[in-house]
Design a protein around this nucleic acid. Structure first.
Lengths: 334, 334
DNA sequence: TTGCGTTGATAAAAGCTTTTAGCAGAAAAA
DNA sequence: TTTTTCTGCTAAAAGCTTTTATCAACGCAA
């Protein structure tokens, strides 16, 4: 009477149950080597029956591919990180690859700790994400023996980097407003030292060659509010549309316009940037805005790291992925 | 002339460089077995010098402990998940344990996929988090051969579960208002079918035995707005304080009060629940609210899974961790 | 001298998988 | 018939670490 413990089944158990050798079992399960079709099916069936699943540690030890990647982020709050990570994970899980999430809190010591742990685990690659665009990676990632992909962060010149296409997004917003017949479009946005801010402002200016007006400020509702007050108190021609650099700014803008009894979108149409649902859905009226397609960004980063880890050639440099327009009531579009 | 590749150093390299056997090297590095103090130091120094770091896969394969845990969540958006995960990771990294993040999107197939991947990787334990309190785990976690800890989710009766202490948090809010001299406190909150809502309402009622008034509704700004209008249009005595079930509701409440030219906090003090910074910091005035200490929740869950994976006894059942009060201007406190 | 306990080190096994090289038998070619 | 080619399978090695059992040397007691 054989005692069957509750330990995991190994390929040895499969081989024994199927009456073949371990190597035949392995070959059959992985469709490698030369195996009789009948034997192969039988082995697979038995493996299924006894609930065999290969030990990823043993496999990784041998093949030098752990089928895991690390995600290194400095973003605690997670407004960007989690959707991106979800996108990465979503596309990788189908390839049997799992994701380690490491929050560095902008702490170099912690970043080093996480990085070492990832390397010890033989991860197949690392995806680095930063919230602040102008922030450099906290540790030296460029000399690593494994591929690195940057998302929302600048890597060295020959690295693989993904960003949303800020200019295209801005054009999307402005052209939407123009298509609705608006002609005096104002741009209220964040601090000029952000690259994304400059890119969006440039695209905006190119779309509105006559009378472009950009107001740089902060990433806050407060600033949106203040900017609107500043514009609408004086005399002179008023804008009939406002393109905001973020949904938070847009929220301040909308609140200020409501305070002044200026109707949205009839008198002034408003478009935001981010499609941060918790903000964009709750403004009154709900906010038309630009979605940066964070999940898709994650998908692409995941596919890139997957390809790189297999040794494929991936185009280096910055890839900018298209944004999309989400129309709600604040622009009066449809 | 020996060719030195750029492959990782193994313990074999250490042993060779130190002129000892592999087992001696291992014993010296791990302070196990019998080793001469001098030899031990020398081996450690050399390991450091040549940059040896043990291969986590090989170690895990042998010791059956991968020093990794899985985090299974159904929360895509991440308002709760990311802070909790950061807390888990923060406490575990010091013990050399890394965290796999798996977003299930409420999709049972995906959950199964992630779970199997985690088991294949021999994770030492799993932390399950759900956003909706009344949501059951999407897969059968109770029969797993590894420990499971639940956060913000209900596990089976004898499981280890962590929640914020909703009642204590509610008392904190109400007592804060009472200490400020408010006597007619209204509670505007979310749907009654949430356990957290019922717990908070109960604690509120116990603190305000005379004239407790609870308005159940939705988790939205809209609802906060509507509730305030409903209360303040009629005649009769008006509340001098409002305790809201979430920061979003509080935001609606504050906006509505401002629309009615009711001053905050002079006429009506407002307290929220969540300390969701992006909301609580941006209301005018900024919102006094209850912080659920999500990071600490993560810390505790991490420590619990760590202990369980080592075979320690951990108290089962639901542990409720204290919330804290964050005072801003909307309550007029200090 | 023999026997014993201690110390410091080592060889070898174990953990589970994939892969390489090789082997026996049968079919095909010479 | 003999030689070659296929086919299907297997033994063994490799991957890197920890742990168990063993061993040599030495001092000390019998």
């Amino acid at each position: 009477m054989t005692k069957i413990g509750d330990r995991r089944r190994t390929i040895y158990d499969v081989a024994k149950a199927a009456g073949v050798s371990i190597s035949t079992a392995s070959n059959a399960l992985n469709d490698t080597g030369r195996t009789n079709a009948e034997t192969r099916e039988r082995v697979k069936r038995i493996a299924e029956e006894i609930g065999f699943r290969p030990n990823a540690l043993a496999r990784g030890l041998l093949t030098k591919r752990s089928h895991a990647v690390g995600m290194l982020t400095n973003d605690t709050y997670g407004r960007l990180t989690l959707p991106i990570t979800a996108g990465v994970s979503e596309v990788l899980i189908d390839h049997g690859v799992s994701v380690f999430l490491c929050a560095t809190n902008n702490n170099p010591r912690l970043a080093k700790l996480h990085l070492d742990a990832l390397l010890d685990r033989q991860v197949d690659g690392i995806i680095f994400t930063a919230t602040r665009l102008d922030l450099k990676p906290p540790v030296e990632l460029s000399k690593l023996p494994i591929p690195v992909v940057y998302v929302f962060a600048e890597g060295p010149a020959d690295s693989v980097t993904f960003f949303p296409d800020d200019e295209q997004g801005a054009r999307l917003a402005v052209n939407h407003l123009k298509a609705l017949g608006r002609s005096r479009i104002l741009h209220i946005t964040g601090p000029e030292d952000y690259l994304a801010v400059r890119l969006r402002a440039r695209a905006y200016r190119e779309c509105c060659p006559s009378g472009a007006d950009v107001m740089f400020g902060e990433w806050s509702e407060e600033w949106g509010h203040e900017a609107v007050e500043r514009v609408f108190v004086g005399s002179g021609e008023k804008p009939d549309a406002i393109f905001c650099g973020s949904d938070e700014i847009a929220r301040g803008v909308i609140d200020a316009l409501r305070d002044m009894n200026i109707s949205i979108p009839t008198e002034v149409a408003v478009v935001g940037f981010d499609n941060w649902e918790v903000v964009a859905r709750q403004t009154r009226p709900p906010l038309t805005t630009i979605d940066m397609e964070l999940k898709e960004l994650g998908h692409q980063a995941g596919l890139a790291i997957l390809g790189l880890s297999k040794g494929e050639q991936i185009a280096t440099g910055i890839t900018r992925l298209p944004c999309s327009l989400v129309v709600r009531q604040s622009s009066g579009g449809h």
